[in-house]
Design a protein around this nucleic acid. Structure first.
Lengths: 248, 248
DNA sequence: ATGATTTGTCTATTGATATAGACAACTATA
DNA sequence: TATAGTTGTCTATATCAATAGACAAATCAT
C-alpha cells in the first residue's frame, strides 16, 4: 500500500494480531519496511495501528515463527530477506521454466494419485462424459526446497493411463505429457480467486493458520484445442505473486 | 473444492465461525451447495466441520447478514442466487466492456482525488522522475448498483491535468483518456496477489470484516508503449473471480 | 559507567469466542 | 393432529484475544 490510510477491524472474526501481521507483510511487500532493516519499535507500531503493544508482539511472534522477521532483544526487530516469487501465467505457463532465474532448483513432487469418476465440472472442462474415469494427481511444487504451490490435477484416464508413474519419475508435467506424444500444449483458460488456506494447504505449503492462498483453475489444451488437463492450483499469497504475461 | 477433505484450524487468529463461513462460500462457488437449495441442517454441518452447532450458527448469521443465505425457522437455510462476477483480464482490460453481458449497468464512481509526489514505485512504473507530481484517483467500480472493485490510480499530473474532472463526469477511464488524445491503450503488466481487506476496502466494497480481496497492480500503456496509468485494484474474492483471457 | 532505547517476561482484568445443554417456535408430512 | 425435523433463544462455563502496567534484560551511544 502506498500511503493508503487504513485501520484495523475489531469483532471481525479475524484477530487483531493476525490483521497486523498481514499489514506488516504488506508493508514489506510494498517497500514500506525495507528488507534487512529494523522495523519501527513495538511501541510505535502499537500506536500506529491503534492497539496495545502486546497485540503487536503477538503479530511479530507469528511472523518470527514464519521466518519473516527476526527479533533481537535490545536491538530491534529485523526484516529478513523475503522477496516473493513471481509466478508467470500466460499461454505457455510451465512450472519449471516460469521460475527460471528466481530459483536454482525446482520440481513437482507427487503426493498421491487416484482414479475417480469425473463430476460435471471436470467432465465439461476435459470434454469427456460425466462419470468417465479420470486420474487425479495431488502435487506440490517446490523451489530450492521450499513449497511454492499445491495443485490438484485431472487427466482423462483412458488417454493418459499411467501418467502418475511418469509424474513420479520425472517431476514434471511437461515431461510426462511428452510420453503420451504431446510435445507442446497451451493454457486455454485461467480463472483466479483467493481464500483462506485449508488444513491440507497449510500442511503441504508449510503455512501458518490463517494464511491466504491464491487459487487458479486452469485448462490446458493441445495446439489444436483439445483439452488434456484440468487443474486447480493453490499458491501461498504471502510468498508468491502471479504475474500475467501480456503477450505470449 | 472437489472432494478435497480439509478441516478447520484452531488457535489460528481466524475465528472458527469465520473459517466455516469461508468454507460455505467455497461450497456454494464449487457447486457443493446448490443455489436456491437448502443447506444441510446446522447439526450436520457442525458434525462435518467438527465444531459446535452454535459456531455454525455464527457463520450462517454472518452470511445471512451478507445476503448470501436466508434462514427460515422450521424449514431450513437456503442459498440465495450468488453467481460470482467473472472479471476478464488481458491486453485490453476495460472495466465496462469486461462485464458486458453479466450486468446491465456499470460505471466507475470517483470517491476522491489528490495530487502528490510520486514515490519510487510509481515513478518507475510511469517512467517519470521520483517526486514529480502525480494525480491520485480513488475509485469504486459498480455494477447494477453493487460495488465490485475498489481502485487507486495514478496519472502523470503534467500530462493529465484535470483528469479527475473527466472521471467524475464520464465515470469511465477510457472516456477520460480520450479527452487527452488517447483513443486506445493496452495493459502492459499485471501482478496479482491477495490479502485481507482493510477498513477502507470493507467500507467501500460493502464487505464483512475478515473478507479477502484479490489485488491487481497494473500498468497501462499507449500503443507505442508509453506508460500512462498505474493502478492498484482490489476485488472482493467472494463476489468476483478474475478470468485471464488467453489471447487478446 | 551511565542513561536511553528496545525487546522479553510477568501478573491482572476484560471482552470475544467456542462449547454444552435444554427447550421454544415453526414447518412439513405421515 | 401427532410427530419428526429444523431454526431460534436462553443460560452457563471455559478458553482465547486484547488491554494495562510494571519491570527485567540486552544493546547502543554518550
Amino acid at each position: 500500500m502506498i500511503g493508503i490510510a487504513s485501520s484495523i477491524e475489531r469483532r471481525s472474526g479475524v484477530s487483531l494480531w493476525r490483521q497486523i501481521a498481514d499489514r506488516i507483510l504488506q508493508g514489506i511487500a510494498s517497500g514500506d519496511f525495507a528488507e534487512n532493516a529494523a522495523l519501527p519499535p513495538e511501541v510505535v507500531l502499537a500506536e500506529r495501528y491503534g492497539v496495545n503493544r502486546h497485540t503487536v508482539r503477538s503479530a511479530i511472534a507469528a511472523l518470527v515463527q514464519e521466518g519473516v522477521l527476526r527479533a533481537e532483544q535490545g536491538r530491534g526487530t529485523f526484516v529478513l530477506s523475503r522477496k516473493r516469487l513471481s509466478y508467470p501465467i500466460g499461454a505457455r505457463t510451465r512450472f519449471s521454466t516460469g521460475l527460471q532465474g528466481q530459483t536454482t532448483e525446482r520440481h513437482i513432487a507427487l503426493l498421491s494419485s487416484s482414479t475417480e469418476p469425473a463430476n460435471r465440472r471436470i467432465a465439461e472442462a476435459l470434454g469427456i462424459a460425466r462419470g468417465a474415469a479420470v486420474i487425479r494427481l495431488e502435487t506440490r511444487g517446490e523451489a530450492d526446497g521450499h513449497p511454492v504451490s499445491r495443485a490438484t490435477t485431472w487427466f482423462d484416464a483412458k488417454r493418459f493411463a499411467g501418467i502418475e508413474d511418469a509424474m513420479a519419475e520425472t517431476g514434471s508435467i511437461t515431461a510426462s505429457l511428452k510420453r503420451f506424444g504431446i510435445n507442446d500444449y497451451l493454457r486455454h483458460s485461467t480463472v483466479l480467486s483467493a481464500r483462506h488456506a485449508d488444513a491440507d494447504d497449510l500442511a503441504a505449503l508449510d503455512l501458518q493458520p490463517g494464511a491466504i492462498v491464491l487459487v487458479t483453475v486452469a485448462v490446458n489444451v493441445t495446439l489444436d484445442g483439445q483439452p488434456i488437463q484440468f487443474a486447480e492450483s493453490r499458491f501461498p499469497a504471502e510468498r508468491v505473486e502471479l504475474r500475467l504475461s501480456a503477450s505470449d
